[in-house]
C-alpha cells in the first residue's frame, strides 16, 4: 500500500497582468486581466513507506508547488491526493501530527529566544508525551551535535547551528512523512554534507518517508535511489537514478594518461575528443562500446593509465531536460 498517492495533480496560479501606463492602471481598478500559470500539470506518482525520493528540476519547475500541495498548504486545482490516508488540504490535525515540512530558507524557531523554548512549544503543539520527547530530543541532538547551543538565543547562532536546530524542531514529533524543500540551499559545502548525512541516517533509522526537492545534483546523487524529474510542471522521469544514467547517458568518459606523445589523429578514431593536453586526454565513447574500445586503446596506444566513468549526472539531466523540450517542440509543431 503506497503511503503517498498522487493522481493527475494540477495546480494553477492566477496572476494578474499589470500593464504599464496611467490609463491601464485606471482600467485595472475596474477590470483585472488574469492569466493562469500552470505550476503543476497533471502529474501522478506513488510512494511507498520508507522511500527517500529526490524531486529535481530547474527553478520554477513545480517541485516546491508539489510539496506544498502534499503538505496541505496549497489547494490543488484538480486531481486526487492521498498521504497517509488523508487529503492534505483538509489539514486534519491527525494528519498534521504525522508529517513535517521543512523549507530551506524559512525559520520556525522564535528568533529572540533559545531554541529550547521553541522545542518545548512544538512538543506541546504536537502533543508529544514527555518521555518520548526526551528520548527523541536526545537522539537528534546527538546526531546533529548541538548540545551546547540549545540555550542560546537563536539570533546569536551561526547559520549551520540554526539549520540544525530548525531540523530538530521539525522532527521532534517523529513524523512518518517528511517533506524537505531545498534543505541545502545557502549552506556551505561542509554543512551540505552534514545535512545529507543526517537525512540519510534519519531515513535509515526511523524509516520515515522522505521527499526531498533540490536543484543540487549532489543532494540527489548522495541520497535518492529513486528520482523524479520535473520540468515545466510535468514529470519527465520517475525511476531509479541508475535508469536515468542507462537511458540518457549515451556515452562513457575515458580519461587517459599517456607515456609518450603521438599525433592527435591516432586517438580520434576511437571516439570524440573532449580535451587533449599531453600527457592527459579525455574522450567520449558510445556506452556499449566502452570496454571494447578501451581494450583496443590499451593495445595500440602508449597508455600509462586509463579511467572509465559515467558522464556527470548534471550533464545527463541537462540532456533529459533538453530532450523534454524537444518533445514539447515536436508536439507543438503537430
Amino acid at each position: 500500500m503506497p503511503i503517498i498517492t498522487v493522481k493527475n495533480l494540477t495546480k494553477y496560479y492566477k496572476i494578474h497582468q499589470k500593464e504599464p501606463g496611467l490609463w491601464e492602471s485606471l482600467k485595472s481598478l475596474v477590470a483585472r486581466k488574469y492569466y493562469d500559470v500552470k505550476a503543476v500539470d497533471d502529474i501522478s506518482f506513488e510512494i511507498e513507506e520508507g522511500e527517500l525520493i529526490g524531486f529535481i528540476g530547474p527553478n520554477g519547475a513545480g517541485k516546491t508547488t508539489t510539496l506544498k500541495v502534499l503538505s496541505g498548504l496549497l489547494y490543488p486545482t484538480s486531481g486526487q491526493i492521498s498521504v497517509l490516508g488523508f487529503e492534505p488540504w483538509k489539514r486534519d490535525h491527525k494528519y498534521l501530527k504525522q508529517m513535517s515540512l521543512v523549507m530551506g530558507q524559512k525559520n520556525q524557531l522564535w528568533w529572540d529566544l533559545p531554541a529550547q523554548e521553541s522545542f518545548i512549544l512544538n512538543k506541546e503543539i504536537y502533543e508529544v508525551p514527555d518521555d518520548q520527547y526526551k528520548k527523541v530530543l536526545n537522539e537528534l541532538v546527538e546526531l546533529l551535535d548541538v548540545k551546547d547551543v540549545l540555550n542560546i538565543q537563536v539570533r546569536k547562532l551561526s547559520l549551520g547551528q540554526r539549520m540544525k536546530c530548525e531540523l530538530i524542531a521539525a522532527l521532534l514529533h517523529s513524523p512518518k512523512v517528511l517533506f524537505l524543500d531545498e534543505p541545502t540551499i545557502g549552506l556551505d559545502v561542509v554543512m551540505q554534507k552534514a545535512m545529507r548525512d543526517f537525512i540519510a541516517e534519519y531515513n535509515k533509522k526511523y524509516k520515515a518517508t522522505i521527499i526531498l526537492t533540490s536543484h543540487y545534483m549532489e543532494d540527489v546523487k548522495k541520497l535518492a535511489k529513486r528520482v523524479v524529474i520535473i520540468d515545466h510542471g510535468k514529470i519527465i522521469f520517475d525511476g531509479k537514478l541508475k535508469e536515468i544514467i542507462d537511458k540518457y547517458a549515451e556515452h562513457k568518459i575515458l580519461t587517459l594518461e599517456f607515456s609518450e606523445e603521438f599525433p592527435k589523429e591516432r586517438l580520434e578514431k576511437f571516439g570524440e575528443i573532449d580535451s587533449w593536453e599531453y600527457p592527459r586526454a579525455v574522450i567520449k565513447v558510445p556506452r556499449l562500446e566502452a570496454s571494447k574500445r578501451a581494450a583496443e586503446l590499451l593495445e595500440t596506444l602508449p597508455v600509462a593509465d586509463i579511467n572509465i566513468e559515467e558522464p556527470p549526472i548534471e550533464a545527463i539531466i541537462r540532456r533529459v531536460f533538453s530532450g523534454g523540450k524537444k518533445q514539447e517542440a515536436k508536439s507543438k509543431k503537430q
Binding site: 506544498k68 503538505s71 496541505g72 498548504l73 489539514r91 490535525h93 491527525k94 498534521l96 501530527k97 508529517m99 513535517s100 515540512l101 523549507m103 524559512k106 520556525q108 512544538n122 503543539i125 504536537y126 502533543e127
Partner: peptide
C-alpha cells in the same frame, strides 16, 4: 512573507 506556512503545517 509566507511564514503562515509554519502555522498551517502544524496541528494549530
Amino acid at each position: 512573507s509566507g511564514d503562515l506556512s509554519n502555522i498551517l503545517t502544524k496541528p494549530l
